[in-house]
């Protein structure tokens, strides 16, 4: 198993963990949301990597006869849907953060908890 041949998967794993770390460790809600987006983007890369065929082109029907090598289009279609889901989640999360800022005047998790405790 050569290391470079699977480096896409390393990128996936590292990006996933960077995003996950940000979600858990950061206390600023915006930074948490950035982490969440990174976390989702890593999975998009996993899917696209799965569908890639070495030397393959776009799967467009060619009228000329002959063998052609295509990349698998299905994971890309799937991930298009997942990207839409990811955008909606981020948009909704940002909307909630705006409302939190309006109500609490801060977007730091600890300060919100202190305000709630009073």
């Amino acid at each position: 198993m050569n290391f470079l041949g699977i480096y896409y998967y390393w990128v996936f794993a590292i990006l996933l963990m960077v995003g996950f770390y940000a979600v858990i460790a950061k206390l600023n809600l915006i930074k948490k949301l950035i982490g969440l987006s990174l976390f989702q983007a890593a999975v998009f890369l996993l899917y696209i990597t799965v569908g890639k065929v070495e030397g393959g082109t776009a799967p467009i029907f060619a009228s000329a006869a002959g063998e052609r090598l295509f990349s698998n289009p299905l994971p890309q279609v799937l991930i298009l849907t997942a990207i839409v889901v990811g955008i909606s989640t981020t948009a909704l999360g940002l909307g909630i953060i705006v409302r939190i800022k309006e109500e609490y005047g801060t977007i730091e998790e600890q300060e919100i908890q202190e305000i709630d405790r009073q």
């Binding site: 996933l16 996950f20 979600v23 809600l29 948490k32 949301l33 969440l36 976390f39 989702q40 999975v43 996993l46 899917y47 799965v50 994971p75 997942a82 889901v85 989640t89 909704l92 999360g93 909630i96 953060i97 409302r99 939190i100 109500e103 609490y104 998790e109 919100i112 908890q113 709630d116």
Partner: peptide, 23 residues
């Protein structure tokens, strides 16, 4: 609002884990 933000973060992590598994 903070409750729903926590729900959103954890729910999205759960769904993304599921997505990795399906992938």
């Amino acid at each position: 609002l903070p409750a729903v933000f926590k729900y959103l973060v954890m729910g999205t992590i759960g769904a993304t884990f599921y997505l990795i598994g399906v992938g």
